[in-house]
Design a protein around this nucleic acid. Structure first.
Lengths: 173, 173
DNA sequence: CAGCATCCATTACGATACTG
DNA sequence: CAGTATCGTAATGGATGCTG
């Protein structure tokens, strides 16, 4: 996600914070208020991809674009800007004709690479197991829903986060 | 969230001397297609929080809600459902009055906890450095942008991402 | 207590067109 | 080549009200 969100989960907690109610969560929420935006960055659609690609070495804009494959120019620009802003990548402009811009991880960026690769590897290793779990879950959900029989209420599933998830990609036109 | 590259020609060879060697490049894109949804899940607004809290032990719905602090019921439900669907948490209903539902990490969920905590710790350790980088970046951006009357010199950079978020940079005070 | 359903605002993202 | 500007759409997520 973009770093734009003004609302971090902690605001409400503190607004409601009863001094006597004694929620043990105070330090936790304060902490995650700082951590949350970083996690949002990690989890947005392209950051991890970009960082891992840059982890192989410096790259120019369109090279990155081509390598990554599905990213729009806009999103690559935005992602790189955010990363630059966070001090995770450097942007070096060579005043040539045509212009060349090279992106590279900073030291901080390389340190991020380590846990990021760990997550990626976890995802890689457990992707099949997760898919299996999903299918199992969906099968049970379908069985538990006596939808058939004529009355089809609107839609069936909200599909907000859960069931859907596999769709929506424009390949090309 | 999911870059379902249905195509992505495997035309590219890495132009930067990547330690890729003989591995076909399309392997990478196919792989990240599987990895991407997992990363999206990780990066959504609440998953990491929920997983880390559950990492401490099983918890009931409203306990979780209270602990986390800023989460709406809807999002907690949705997040837990997704996690359950992915086989990362179990949901146990006790047929008491009033009903009790307990959530706990599965084995898979606990294995996820490891890299997730690594990321969280990274975020924690580098939050200040990132904030500093952001302020530095924003300062430069502001300096490059003449707010009034001045010279509109080329080189005045980003207005795309920057402006909108400096205002909201502070999460809580 | 746990949880769905509905409405609604904000945001993310892709496509497209234009610039230095 | 490497962007920027603008638009439309889809997804995200909060608030509220209803259920067993």
């Amino acid at each position: 996600m973009k770093p734009g969100h003004s609302h971090v989960p902690a605001t409400q907690a503190f607004a409601n914070g009863i001094p006597n109610g004694g929620t043990p969560a105070n330090h936790v929420t304060a902490e995650c208020a700082r951590v949350a935006p970083v996690l949002s960055r990690i989890g947005d659609k392209w950051t991890v991809l970009v960082v891992t690609f840059l982890g192989r070495g410096p790259m120019r804009f369109n090279a990155l674009r081509r390598e990554i494959g599905g990213i729009s120019q806009r999103m690559l620009t935005l992602t790189l800007r955010s990363l630059e802003r966070d001090g995770l990548v450097t942007r070096t402009v060579y005043a040539t004709v045509p212009p060349q811009v090279e992106y590279a991880l900073t030291e901080l960026g390389r340190s991020l690479l380590i846990p990021v690769l760990a997550i990626r590897d976890w995802a890689r290793q457990n992707a099949l197991q997760i898919e299996a779990a999903q299918q199992h879950f969906d099968a049970l959900a379908a069985a538990a829903r006596p939808a058939c029989g004529g009355v089809a209420h609107t839609g069936g599933r909200p599909s907000a986060v859960g069931v859907d998830e596999i769709a929506h990609l424009q390949s090309e036109r």
